[in-house]
Design a protein around this nucleic acid. Structure first.
Lengths: 193, 193
DNA sequence: CGCGGGTTTGATGATGCTCAAGCCCGGTGG
DNA sequence: CCACCGGGCTTGAGCATCATCAAACCCGCG
């Protein structure tokens, strides 16, 4: 259950086994079924989720009713609405479950207490936040400078594990194109190769 | 010199005059000339800048040599590469000066000391970081869901003060379109109105 | 006056969208 | 066992949007 979390943390800081056990005590394990909602637009994001099995996605819905995927999360990833979680503002995103999943939940008070009990965790969360910042900046830059095909190639390189598990329609939404366009891009690529 | 900073901070937390004076002592005022570079790609961003006069911009350059504007900063705004500043990694952006400007510079050790001396400033920086997160998420969502004209309208609504001071070419770069396209969009809008 | 930048305009073309139909395939019920 | 769905993917035709290339224009400034 907590093995993956242990490796996740160990990759960033060194904790004693005791400290790690203490950390674990703040998380609440939960199983989620496909199509279930983890967070609905308008709600406050009260907890962040570390995925130990399965796959979730965060998306927003535009004025025309079209969904736009902001993030996927599989094993070893976190998912939440960081802004809503931090500020308590209602979320503008929805998070739902693409595959039956297991997550470890952490709410705000638990997170604060954890960081007091195990100060090294402060560093872990700072590193995660920085990584998140890199990813979002990179995504803005790429959306400004790359064509749809280049963005798809970049996606494949960056997230090879996601490609196998997520439907093309979802990937298209992440890339900001229609499923039809992605289908054609894939055809072109296979022709070239 | 520090009046604008005072208002900026007062809008977020209450400080005594003493505390504010203490804060000021950590900043280094600097004047910058148009076309000067504040940060060049590949350098480490050693300080963050609070703009008290003038205008700066952060941009990246893609493989084809095209510039893409990430952010503008006029009076009452901050500019830096947050990631490079926090982690010490070389920056992927360049920051240059669009108008003769005055800034207040804060380097990392000064910022740390300030937050120890005036703990309320920790809150100010947290609020700024959250605002930055909102802005970047919003920009991703809008780049996925809005047309060029809609993005331009949104820009006008969100940053009316920038519109008057920044050349159309720069705004086009921010929006992810060519100057020609922006010119045509403006013509269409004026025809409609 | 003439240079130089930013902007505008025109013509053409590439990219990606929309609408619509067909296809593939796994699941369900007769 | 097979016919019939239904969802996701593919394909096609036509269209809207935006880029590209090229030229003209405007205007402040040396």
């Amino acid at each position: 259950m907590f093995n993956l979390l242990k490796k996740h943390i160990a990759a960033r800081v060194s904790l004693t086994d005791e400290e790690f056990e203490t950390c674990c005590s703040y998380f609440v394990p939960k199983n989620l079924k496909k199509h279930q909602f983890f967070l609905m637009e308008g709600e406050v994001c009260k907890q962040i989720a570390f995925v130990t099995k399965g796959c979730l996605r965060a998306y927003s819905v535009d004025a025309r009713g079209v969904e736009h995927v902001l993030q996927f999360a599989i094993e070893d990833w976190w998912i939440s609405d960081p802004l809503s979680f931090l500020t308590g503002a209602p979320s503008t995103y929805t998070i739902d479950v693409l595959e039956d999943s297991s997550v470890l939940l952490l709410d705000k008070p638990a997170r604060e207490e954890m960081m007091i009990a195990v100060p090294m965790m402060e560093r872990v969360f700072r590193l995660l936040q920085e990584a998140h910042l890199v990813a979002t900046h990179r995504r803005i830059t790429e959306s400004l400078s790359l064509s749809a095909e280049e963005r798809y190639t970049r996606f494949l390189e960056t997230y090879p594990k996601l490609t196998e598990r997520i439907s093309q329609g979802q990937i298209a939404s992440y890339l900001g194109i229609t499923p039809q366009s992605l289908s054609r891009i894939r055809k072109d690529r296979s022709r070239k190769a």
